[in-house]
Design a protein around this nucleic acid. Structure first.
Lengths: 347, 347
DNA sequence: ATACACTATGTGAACGCTCACAATGCGGAA
DNA sequence: TTCCGCATTGTGAGCGTTCACATAGTGTAT
């Protein structure tokens, strides 16, 4: 029985790693019995099990998950496709998914995109699949990413995190519309005639959802719906677009689509000598850790990203188990009132 | 030759996935020739290669990396152990490693710790190893994490990112000492008698390195070395410890160990009516995207985390290739001067 | 011609595990 | 006693690759 490395052992090389046969031999059973113990089969006599477990401990045996994956077709590994993990939202969602996955005994492979379009998302999913993952979660809250998911072969489990609202694919998301509406409602309740909106990029579905919630709330209140101003999520864009907002005479309240832009805007307003919230109220979105310590502390809509990640994972696991219908789960956001909002100033 | 799923096919289930034998059959060669084509062996006639490639395309054949991993013992997957990926530094480093790894054809499995000590780090590494990764990078810039690495069996490739300076293990790090020294030197050059330091937790090696750089620079300049004040990296702690700093009469300049704490401190100073930089100069560390848009824009020490990630990966790959001696690489930081620093005020 | 070095391709085995089924031993019902 | 069923264990095969070696084919120095 010629092994790859035959008996005339070349170096003092110690046995790389114990395998199932080694354990079986030491315990005086067959490899199959070892396998049964490992898989917690009830068909093993208590005493035998003990003997096997002892052998496992003695040899410091670790099951080879690659071999197991080969035969079972399940790797107990999940893939996550992300974009721009420096952003607080994606980073937190990833973390949520990852920790939930580990709790369920899954490893997590990530693939972070540099550019985001249908092809890159699709390619990343395929690559993960080739690496043997059992399913993939996509944190790509742009329309392109969401389109991509429709093109994944339907027998491969995929979920989307925080992708927009109109989808035929399984999705976990924060209710952006409700969040934006709540913030808008709050500002109106403070006496503001209307609320401006510094939005995110048009291809981000969550940006669109926020616009929708904001506009709907204004309309419901009979308030004017101003044109949206588009930023790109960065503090820089908030700063630069502050310029534009400063020109608007009647501006008394602005809903900003994320905290980072709000931060840039706050800076610009400060430079222009505008007082927040005396002259102008500002609401952000996300509740980044910094939000409470800005000047002034930022009123914002908190998103529970780790909850989102958890739910996302649950959906994915169910799909892996074979559930077919696309589940959709929504996490409610929460308005956190701090010091950047106040009553409308007298005109 | 009984296959698992025999000819009396149960459902209209189409063939799950083409395998090498299918390609071989279609191309009229043996599976081994297909393997050779896949592995770019020169021992294949051009015409044969073409035929095989055509068959691969036609069947949409994808090599099964799990099977390959089983036989080669290489999975082309790397593991990354991280802590608190919501923090800007770790998140960015992870991103750097991940993207560099993908460029090299490696997949990346992550494991993010909830608590950080020797056992959790070790357990995470083992778990990744059990899942078949070829090597592991640890982003755990605390002493405990670094201790853990010394206990990993030496035949398994491991690198540390940004772990402190005294190590017998392969490490890529930013030169914290130099960064802190540069910032301190700059403040002294502005005429400040000495510089206070709001440091990070004592078990973080980068916190200690920064303290060391700061203290050394003060000593070199013959300046008094005040007691350090300890924060925990959060904006909250910067805010709360601001209280303590406010009591110090002679305080004119403070070096804060990261931007988030600096942000909290700035907030506290603002509340207390202290003007930055007129009354007090503040320098941060990291250059988070928000730093330029704080009030005032923060002078800080920029760390190139993605470069760090890249280097980290290179070291890891070299180890996987069999390099033995622990390489150590250092990335220089950069002092970014903005508006939170200025000349010392008259006492 | 005969051997000798290639080149190009094929065959058998192994990686470490799980699945399907066979084999063994035992107690109790017939 | 004889047979059946059940609990327990073992055997053979196969997952989809790659590695090591064997074989066939071609040209060329001897």
């Amino acid at each position: 029985m010629p092994r790859r490395m035959t008996s005339p052992a070349p170096k003092t090389e110690k046995r790389r790693h114990a395998v199932m046969t080694d354990v079986a031999r030491l315990a005086g059973v067959s490899y199959q019995t070892v396998s049964r113990v490992l898989n917690e089969s009830p068909l093993v006599r208590g005493e035998t099990r003990e003997r096997v477990l002892a052998a496992i401990r003695e040899l410091d045996y670790r099951p080879n998950s690659v071999a197991r994956a080969l035969v079972t077709g399940r790797s107990k590994t999940l893939g996550v496709v992300t974009f721009d993990t420096k952003l607080y939202g994606p980073a937190s969602t990833l973390l949520g998914i990852e920790q939930a996955a580990h709790d369920e005994g899954y490893a997590v492979s990530i693939s972070s995109l540099r550019s985001l379009n249908r092809d890159t998302v699709l390619a990343a999913i395929e690559q993960l699949r080739d690496h043997g993952v059992d399913g993939v979660a996509v944190i790509a809250p742009v329309r392109a990413g969401f389109d991509a998911l429709k093109h994944v072969r339907s027998d491969f489990p995929v979920v989307a995190a925080a992708v927009g609202s109109t989808a035929s694919i399984p999705v976990a998301s924060v209710d952006q519309t409700a969040g934006a509406a709540a913030a808008t409602r709050y500002l109106l309740s403070l006496g503001h005639k209307t609320v401006w909106h510094l939005a995110g990029p048009a291809d981000w579905t969550e940006a669109e959802d926020r616009i929708q919630g904001w506009a709907a709330e204004l309309e419901a209140a009979g308030a004017e719906v101003p044109d949206v101003v588009r930023g790109d999520w960065t503090p820089r864009s908030g700063y630069e677009l502050g310029e534009r907002l400063l020109e608007i005479r009647e501006l008394t309240a602005v809903l900003v689509a994320n905290d980072q832009m709000a931060l840039g805007l706050l800076r610009r307003l400060h430079e222009a000598g505008r007082q927040v919230p005396r002259d102008l109220s500002v609401v952000g979105f996300d509740d980044i850790p910094e939000a409470a310590y800005l000047t002034p502390p930022l009123t914002t809509v908190r998103q529970d990203f780790s909850e989102l990640g958890k739910l996302c994972l649950q959906i994915l696991l169910r799909r892996i188990e074979g559930e077919l219908e696309p589940t959709r789960v929504v996490v409610p956001p929460e308005l956190v009132i701090r010091a950047s909002t106040g009553p409308a100033r007298k005109r």
